[in-house]
């Protein structure tokens, strides 16, 4: 079982450092955002699994030959309040770390979900009081604000897309259709769930520089996926115009009151230009996408197999 612990620890290191950096830099992801998103999820999940798995596998060494038998022996040891021979401080410490880490990640996820749900409800109440239904598109509302803004509010029973008056002023009706199709795609594909999971991962492990990159990369991929749905409604030029017009509207010359006082931290990376540049590119060929999915599956299978069979 020492082998399993070592392999899991190495896997943890790889998934915590070089792999996310390479993936965040990779250029092919813009040509296959759905596949790339699946890979990111596999990296995050396999990373967490290996981290906790490595600690468990190491801590259970004196208890049994496999993690399964080790866990059973650990249960008996807890009832008898007597440790088996060979169980030292380092093993107990590793087990405690595994439990604390697992609990920490889980509690953080729950807290993030509860907080964001509370804020979403409060936001929805305000939006419904302050906005008018937009007659041309169901589930869409207009709020009287000068900055061009469009976003969606996911809900368990009803989801809405909110447009600002500034957005209606800025765009032609075709460009507006692109924006609405984009937002509806977010809602239909439940993108907020993925974003929330990565947000929670980031806030649970703030000292992890990688979590920040992962969160940004995933946010960009989700926008690209929604853009791809908008491209089914309008041509690429219309979508590109809509993106650029809204993206540059906050810049000098346009109504900037609400957008001006943003610090550098508010825009850590270019999150818009890649969306325009990719519109001229060919999608990644099917074999390449299949290969990425195979890697994602393997990433999840290896730590699982090590824990169950080692």
């Amino acid at each position: 079982m020492l082998h399993a612990a070592v392999i899991l620890a190495l896997l943890t290191l790889a998934l915590a450092w070089p792999v996310p950096i390479l993936l965040a830099r990779a250029r092919w992801t813009a040509r296959a955002p759905g596949t790339a998103l699946a890979l990111w999820q596999a990296v995050a999940l396999a990373g967490g699994l290996s981290m906790i798995g490595a600690l468990l596998a190491y801590g259970l060494i004196p208890f049994g030959a496999t993690p399964g038998r080790g866990l059973a022996a650990l249960g008996r040891a807890a009832v008898d309040t007597r440790l088996p021979p060979g169980a030292g401080f380092e093993h107990v410490f590793a087990l405690c770390c595994a439990v604390i880490l697992g609990t920490h990640l889980l509690l953080n996820l729950i807290a993030t979900v509860i907080r964001s749900e509370r804020q979403r409800r409060r936001h929805l109440t305000l939006v419904e009081l302050l906005s008018q239904p937009y007659p041309e598109h169901a589930g869409t509302r207009v709020i009287d604000h000068a900055a061009p803004i469009a976003y969606c509010l996911p809900g368990a029973t009803r989801s809405i897309t909110v447009l600002s008056a500034g957005m209606l002023d800025l765009l032609t009706s075709d460009e507006l259709r692109a924006v609405i199709a984009h937002e509806k795609a977010h809602l239909r594909q439940q993108h907020h769930t993925v974003l929330l999971a990565f947000k929670s991962w980031h806030s649970a492990l703030p000292w992890f520089p990688i979590a920040n990159r992962a969160e940004n990369a995933v946010a960009l991929l989700v926008e690209m996926l929604a853009d791809d749905q908008a491209r089914r409604v309008v041509d690429d030029g219309t979508l590109a115009r809509a993106i650029v017009l809204v993206g540059t509207a906050g810049d000098p010359g346009a109504p900037t009151d609400a957008l001006a006082p943003l610090s550098e931290a508010a825009h850590p990376a270019d999150m818009v230009t890649p969306r325009v540049r990719r519109l001229g590119q060919e999608p990644l060929p099917l074999p390449a996408r299949a290969a990425v999915l195979a890697v994602a599956t393997a990433l999840l299978a290896v730590p699982t197999a090590l824990l169950l069979l080692a």
Binding site: R115, E183, L195, L196, M271
Partner: peptide, 11 residues
């Protein structure tokens, strides 16, 4: 807590 998925974020 949860950043709203805006069509275009801060540029």
């Amino acid at each position: 807590e949860a950043a709203l998925a805006r069509f275009i974020g801060n540029v």
